[in-house]
């Protein structure tokens, strides 16, 4: 063999990948972090379906809070005022509108163009990825009659965080309490963010019997932007009546995020004696 020979390499990218009879896109990562030094990040979109998908990207300002039931929901202010740490107005997506072919991926670059003199701190936005694909199949209608079918569209919202300068985070817990709710033990705790950045981490809880044995537990990712009073649940089926020790711990650990993206802070813990009827 010599280097004179000519052979065009043909590599079937993603050959063998399963084609889904669905429409939508895969978005990765599911949380975007930018800093003032690089001011850019990228998200990868992948179309697992058999039809092209039209995708548009936009940004808006909102942050998670908890409702009266302790469930996380988004708080979207009616208007963004000067005191709000919003990055939505100065985040740009390139491209902003695109078509992703079947089984293809598309890189979208997110660039930050913050205003001059932006104070040190952490700024937030949400990135909305709207995907509109080919219609899903519906049954063929009787041409002389009435046939009805609805296709499905999807939008994915992921958080974006922009950091400038040194930012710190922490958490203060208070008001830990637990209430039997059906076959579960509903646990709530007031969590208030400390420092200048959102607290991104994991909440873990353990219920121990009198012998110290763990009889129930939970582990959930949490994002405390200001304050929240989330509800967690531990199954109590089969647990005999009596006294138990409940411990709750929040740490900055997350298995789904890059370690370098997480701000480190000391774990915070609280505990409570619980009596089950």
């Amino acid at each position: 063999m010599t280097l004179r020979r000519f052979f065009l390499p043909v590599v079937a990218l993603l050959a063998g990948t399963q084609v889904l009879a669905a429409q939508g896109v895969v978005v990765a990562p599911h949380a975007v972090y930018l800093d003032h030094r690089t001011r850019s990040a990228a998200i990868t979109l992948y179309n697992p379906g058999a039809e092209p998908v039209e995708v548009s990207i936009s940004a808006f300002y909102a942050y998670p809070v908890t409702d009266s039931l302790g469930q996380f929901t988004l708080e979207t202010p009616d208007s963004v005022t000067a005191g709000m740490p919003s990055a939505a107005a100065w985040i740009r997506a390139f491209p902003r509108i695109m078509t992703v072919p079947p089984l293809a991926r598309q890189t979208v670059r997110l660039l930050a163009q913050p205003p001059a003199g932006l104070p040190d701190g952490e700024y937030w936005s949400l990135v909305l990825i709207a995907a509109k694909g080919g219609s899903l199949p519906v049954s063929a209608g009787d041409t002389a009659g009435i046939s009805v079918g609805l296709t499905l569209e999807v939008r994915t919202i992921i958080p974006l965080t922009y950091r400038k300068g040194a930012v710190v985070t922490g958490l203060a817990l208070s008001g830990l309490h637990a209430t039997p709710a059906g076959d579960s033990l509903a646990i709530r705790v007031h969590a208030e963010r400390q420092g200048s950045a959102a607290y991104i981490g994991t909440a873990r809880g353990a219920l121990r019997d009198a012998a110290g044995k763990v009889v129930g537990s939970f582990s959930e990712p949490v994002a405390i932007y200001y304050q929240a009073e989330p509800t967690f649940a531990i199954a109590r089926q089969g647990l005999p009546a009596g006294r138990y020790q409940l411990t709750v711990e929040f740490t900055n650990e997350r298995t789904d995020l890059m370690p370098e993206q997480l701000l480190k802070g000391p774990p915070v813990r609280d505990s409570l004696e619980v009596t089950l009827p």
């Binding site: 063999m1 010599t2 280097l3 004179r4 020979r5 000519f6 052979f7 065009l8 390499p9 043909v10």
Partner: peptide, 28 residues
């Protein structure tokens, strides 16, 4: 087909080969 060799001379053309197997090239 995951490996391609190409000489630096302007007339050289790329050669695709199997990186999992030993290959011998004569430099022409």
């Amino acid at each position: 087909t995951d490996a391609v060799a190409q000489g630096t001379a302007g007339s050289s053309v790329p050669v695709t080969f199997n990186p999992n197997a030993t290959q011998t090239f004569n430099l022409v």
